[in-house]
Design a protein around this nucleic acid. Structure first.
Lengths: 244, 244
DNA sequence: CGATTTTTCTGGTATATACCAACTCAACTG
DNA sequence: CAGTTGAGTTGGTATATACCAGAAAAATCG
């Protein structure tokens, strides 16, 4: 029986396997979307147990180099999708002009009433009528992020093309007549089962959350937008003034 | 022997334990920095194996509710530290004015020469002399993020107080004479062993990476700054113009 | 040849066990 | 009483095994 401890090698075995996998991916031996060896095969190749091989695969997954389709296998992640928060309104056209095959799928759209949480964010009374739209953004049919938009119906229904444009992304010119500024918050987020399902991931996986509170020229909020990004695909950029 | 499969319950056992833990934390039964039950104890409490209890603890850890000190235990995370990228220069004073006990430890400071990677970022020839400063930011002695600052020596050594201020954070007024704007990139990042050690975490844990490229009034970059944040403590905010 | 069934593959969950390294704290020693 | 020792704790790594559910490919059937 092999040594089950870590005494004779300073770096754990699973991390050695991680190194080997990372090498193959960054060197381009494994191109985007190509399959990695399965847990069982990798275990055999490196003469370790399946659980150890699995830990290695989970680690490269956590690094963002690899994504996972539940009972299908693990694949090399595509490049990240940049979201420039200094130029939100042009996100979709910017991405497409860079040659990215970005598609948007409308998952749901309905009228709801504000609960306590969202009412507080938008500074409206509880029960205020809101329009909720949920969209899935994909790169080359690969789910990238989920967007939930909640806008105050009373404020937005007069906007040109509001009704028919539910399938378009938030803030993509649509709000030009109203939109002025947005408060943005970005943080790490662990996927809940619902989000995970829509993004084709496992729950508890690390992801990125972006919240946007869009205000009109008077500073009054009229739209709250929540984005949940696959962590390995998210990249937020901005240009900031150092001196205020 | 208990049922080892998941057939009779739709939600896995470890996720049920996650729910229970999350409940205790968010309800305030477990205050900040208080210890969670150990893996072995939790396993006994819920009548599962240690590995299952461990997975539950790793999940709440991934959610950011809990942090881990390697051979000591797991503890409830403190609140996040906000970093306003629209007001970088005032980060430290802003935080302190909100009553946060923020301290900065200078881990290293030395002159180095630009390698290919950093030379490209700063648009300088390889081998250019740079000043590297590494700082650890702590909240109440709790490591929060790691900052590596690389500034072009030639450009910065004339600045008032450059030498003695190595222990102060980047962009904290210090660069006022030069600083004008910064290009910022934020993404998910898995800790490498070095970063993990300095932050008191395990490698491969999800973290946040912020890169800043600081430019002078002519748009010429003179400082590159890399921040590695504990994922559960990072919160980036900004105010953005929707219409450009 | 097309439709259906079966087998094989995938990752997901779960257990029981084992040893290691580092930390804590109480007991002991000088 | 300060310093050391040692037992007990903690998480980290690793194995071997087992069954499940779903996807895909192969074999079979009509």
């Amino acid at each position: 029986m092999a040594d089950t401890s870590t005494s004779n090698s300073e770096t754990p075995r699973f991390r050695q396997i991680v190194e080997a996998l990372r090498e193959q991916i960054t060197n381009g031996k494994l191109p985007e979307h190509s399959p990695l060896p399965s847990e069982r095969l990798l275990a055999e190749d490196h003469a370790v147990s399946r659980m150890t091989a699995r830990r290695a695969l989970e680690a490269v997954e956590a690094e963002g180099l690899v994504y996972n389709i539940v009972r299908q296998g693990r694949f090399v992640s595509p490049r990240r999708l940049n979201y420039n928060i200094s130029s939100m309104a042009n996100f979709v056209s910017d991405a497409r002009s860079r040659g990215i095959d970005l598609s948007i799928e409308l998952i749901g759209s309905r009228a709801i009433r504000a609960d306590r949480h969202i009412a507080e964010k938008l500074s409206v009374p509880r029960g205020t009528q809101l329009q909720e739209s949920v969209r899935l953004f994909k790169m080359r049919d690969h789910a990238t992020f989920l967007e939930t938009e909640l806008s105050i119906l009373e404020r937005c229904k007069g906007l040109p093309g509001f009704e028919e444009l539910q399938s378009r992304p938030v803030c993509d010119q649509r709000y030009s007549p109203l939109g002025e500024s947005a408060d943005i918050v970005i943080r790490l987020h662990a996927l809940n089962p619902d989000e995970a399902g829509k993004l084709g991931m496992a729950p508890h996986q690390p992801a990125m959350k972006q919240e946007q509170l869009v205000r009109d020229e008077n500073g009054v909020a009229f739209c709250y937008c929540l984005q949940i990004w696959r962590g390995e695909l998210a990249e937020f950029s901005a240009r900031s003034l150092v001196i205020v």
